[in-house]
Design a protein around this nucleic acid. Sequence first.
DNA 1: GTATGCTTTCGGC
DNA 2: TTACGGCCGAAAGCATAC
Length: 362
Amino acid sequence: MVRVIGHVDLDYFYAQVEEVQSPSIKGRPVLVCVFSGRTEDSGVVSTANYEARRLGIGSGMPIALAKKKLKGVAGAVIPMHRERYEAVSEEIMRLVGGRVDVLEQTGIDEAFFDITKSSNGDYSAARNTAAGIKAAILKSQGLTASIGLGRSKIVAKMASDFVKPDGLTVVTPDSTTDFLTPLPVIRLYGVGPKTSQALEELKIHTIGDLATSDITDLEPRFGRKVSAYLLQAAKGEDEDPVTERQETTQFSRIITLKQNTKDANAAFKELLPAIEELHQRLLSKGISFRTLSTIGILTDLSTRTKTKTFESSAESLLVRKNEILTLLQELTGAIDKELRRVGIRVSGLSDTESQTSLTQFY
DNA sequence: GTATGCTTTCGGC
DNA sequence: TTACGGCCGAAAGCATAC
């Protein structure tokens, strides 16, 4: 049976949650910001609403620059409230999950879903389901979302991106080629500015150009695997199934240092509260880890990591304090620029309880 | 060559 | 004139074992 895949994307999510929380800011530019604490305005914009975007403000923009673009306009510059967004997201995902066959959450504000069975392969029935999901999200949390339907994840994702905010775009299997063909390659999922520019140089401008291009023209530039992906994607033919997301595979904390340094001890000291927070998070979730990484972001914003995997997993980050410091020393020893930000990551996760019972069993 | 596991980097939101 | 987070998953890169 032809699949019916959906992609739901909550519109300008963090900023929209803030609008619902504080209705008086609606209609004004809203900037949800991450303040790093180094200076009053150091940090970046995480999410901007559409009024702010119209002024040229967007994600990742330094706060100081964004404020400049506000000029005299009375914008709402709000620090982000991550836990609030997580709670809203959780509620919405639960709600959507109850209306689809399979839900695959891919971020705090988006998810793929499969409704092949419940819609019986009928795209008209599927449209009603999608409209119902939008209505339910609006009723429950007061938020708009954009949904796309298509025969594959790629098509669904591009469809949800086609009309937003508050969009509902249905691309039937028959209309897939017509939908994709005229779009510029930059719109293709997985194609960023770099790949896009390389394709332009091969005179491939639209997804249609890409779909009908010769793989032997692509391979010298992109390699076999990427070329095959690009061709497949341009035809909207990916077979990637929608699967329930397994548990989180890694946890990390990263901070911006008060001042740049190459001193591992100084960085460690400033990182300690974040380490303790992550420690508490692991304990409260009953999670052990086997792999430990330190992360450094240098003054040029490039990233360096040092990682160590242990024989057995630990439930306490604090008993690995010495290893953390050692990794930080290895990291600082291998760089020529100063550290601007520093962080810690744990992976190779396992459930502490089941591990304990396994240990008892053996 | 293939499978596997670990480390590092990349890119999305 | 410049300005610059904090997460996450996955891909890429590399080594080892068979």
